[in-house]
């Protein structure tokens, strides 16, 4: 994962070079940048704007409109807890409360060791098997408090 300014610039240039010919390319570029860097660094906004012949306001407006795009570095893994109705019907609110307490952070927060981000999500499409979470990209169903702790405390796999 690129983690210095020069590295970021190279990633963004590559994404722009590859995608700017596509129709309506801004979301494609933002996805490519976030996939590579983990978030959209504020310094990337003017670079993307210049590359796509948009205003900085237009790029900033899109980044901030969508819940998925982040402007700050996330934890090494993200845990998303579903808070929508079907999961609420089987105890998602209690699980959300447990997640906050267990990790010691609120939603949108990052644990102090930088290991985990906690995010709310409104439906993972696993509505017959809730409560559901997605942890480091993997979906888990019928998650109890104990299972949440076991999953989030499991050592991270190094990529």
């Amino acid at each position: 994962m690129a983690n210095d300014d020069a590295g970021h610039q190279a990633v963004i240039d590559a994404a722009l070079g590859r995608l700017k010919g596509e129709p309506g390319p801004l979301l494609l570029v933002l996805h490519a940048v976030q996939d590579a860097i983990g978030y959209i660094p504020p310094a990337a906004v003017p670079q993307i704007a210049a590359g796509l012949n948009l205003s900085r306001a237009e790029v900033h407006g899109v980044v901030t409109f969508y819940h998925y795009f982040k402007s700050h570095p996330p934890g090494r893994r993200t845990v998303e807890v579903c808070r929508a109705e079907a999961c609420q019907a089987v105890g998602a609110e209690a699980l959300a409360e447990h997640a906050r307490k267990s990790l010691g952070i609120d939603f949108h927060g990052v644990t102090s060791d930088g290991a985990l981000s906690l995010e709310a999500v409104y439906c993972l499409g696993n509505c017959a098997c809730g409560p559901s979470i997605r942890l480091g990209g993997k979906l888990h169903g019928r998650v109890t408090n104990e299972r949440f702790d076991a999953l989030t405390r499991r050592p991270e796999r190094v990529k």
Partner: peptide, 9 residues
């Protein structure tokens, strides 16, 4: 498919 309770798509 953002509606909670749906997963057909």
């Amino acid at each position: 498919e953002g509606d909670s309770g749906t997963f057909a798509d």
